[in-house]
Design a binder for these strands. Structure first.
Lengths: 251, 251
DNA sequence: AGTTACTGGGTACGACGTACGCAAGTGGGA
DNA sequence: TCCCACTTGCGTACGTCGTACCCAGTAACT
């Protein structure tokens, strides 16, 4: 078989020249996988379940994708495709990166199971490529590629970690099969034991303060994002490369 | 029996009063899992394989742990235990956080498969608790807990993302079963196609520039870390307060 | 027309997590 | 002291997973 001949899925042609017309498509399969994951969680995304979703036999999927791992790569790139960055090197780098950050977070919140699919940087799909061009294009005019990569690593790191943490709690609740209050009540005894032990003053602070004040998730994310953008601003060369001028940020 | 009675593994007593003395222990099991993952990768960590590693029958593990997921939680906390932060609120916050960051990264490089185990923040194990106390204790005297959490999210985000990216390439190579040069040569055609298409100028820059200059991983990490620490420094109150002062939930 | 390369999909295999049951071992109450 | 309830380790077995293999049917080439 010629499966192992190809470097990755993107090198593998979707449709051959000869033979009968395929009844399905990669896009359709990836779409079904996303639908299932959204509705039933990542663990429900099995080959049989996907096949059933599109009304195909289980083994038919392997006509479109060499393995489940490759299918996941397809799905991962489809998710990147949801991130809308039209017209993004707009001249206002801070607005652009802010928009990017919020787009990524929104995508994570729409699909909490993204955490389970990993994106390879060495075999970027079309959507990830488009994203790279747009996002890195923002600072490209004023930075070396190395500096740009370094700064984007910080930004991406913050955004992904924040999203990951936000999402992990929701996923944990979902997987438990309980409602959020039920689940909270269930985990209460352990927290209570930690608090009453007196050994963890800072954890106690977190647990108690969190229950009271604590701003909303959105504001929390925004605050951290501003910090990160400040950090990027400080690393930028003093003179704006073009006539593009930006005043104070607001969103 | 009574498995579902407990909130999480940490609430479940390791040894009951009655009955014969157990032949193994949770620590021993977690240790075996780590050993296997280090040697053969995360996918080799199965219940049967772990049992074989310690010379037990497959089902014997379930006398110590209610499920595989809980076993993974044990392993995750064991990994946190590798992070050495003795004497860490030392008075020099920047040195402390730098040390923390390098400890975390080193742990990731030792165990590239950490990416596959997820740490719950709601049911922190003993090692994670100790870590929280130490790390957040660094800035606790001069920040509100909310601000501290926000800043630590940025730091953790950077460190974890950097480590994750560093590690993912190595894992991809390992899983392919090829040597690094073989694997690189294998993925070359795709990169070449992208470059010659001319559609991705920035990706091209990355691919070509990376091949030439590019400082070492360590320096790259250090550079980004300094940026992040600068960002934290900027968010710190100008005067080091003599004792804890909290403002009201303000950002 | 025949040849060839494809299609969808049924059957089957090995490996996984783990429910269940059993014989053997142990410690607290009689 | 002796029980016996409750532990222990573990063999067997079930359902589900990814997927190798095989087949008959179909569309584009010669």
């Amino acid at each position: 078989m010629a499966d192992a001949e190809y470097t990755n899925i993107w090198m593998r042609p979707e449709r051959p020249a000869r033979g009968p017309k395929p009844a399905y498509s990669r896009a359709q399969i990836a779409e079904a996988a996303v639908r299932i994951a959204d509705a039933e969680g990542a663990e429900a995304v099995t080959m049989r379940r996907i096949a059933a979703e599109i009304g195909a036999g289980a083994m038919s999927l392997y006509r479109y994708v060499p393995s489940r791992d490759d299918l996941i790569v397809l799905v991962a790139d489809r998710l990147q495709g949801e991130i809308d960055l039209d017209g993004v090197p707009s001249g206002d780098w801070r607005a652009d990166l802010t928009r990017y950050a919020h787009e990524v977070r929104a995508m994570w919140l729409r699909h909490p199971w993204v955490a389970t699919v990993h994106r390879s940087l060495l075999a970027p799909g079309p959507n990830q490529l488009r994203l790279i061009e747009r996002v890195m294009g923002v600072l490209d005019p004023c930075l070396s590629i190395d500096e740009n990569l370094g700064l984007m690593a910080i930004l991406n790191g913050y955004v992904e970690s924040a999203a990951r943490e936000e999402v992990s709690r929701a996923e944990e609740v979902r997987r438990s099969g309980l409602s959020e209050p039920e689940w909270l009540a269930r985990s209460y005894p352990y927290v209570e034991r930690l608090l009453s032990s007196g050994d963890y003053p800072i954890f106690t602070k977190i647990a108690t303060d969190t229950r009271h004040l604590r701003l909303g998730r959105d504001d929390q994310f925004r605050y951290g994002l501003e910090r990160v953008l400040d950090c990027i601003a400080a690393a930028l060369p003093p003179t704006p490369p073009r006539r593009e001028r930006r005043e104070d940020h607001d969103d």
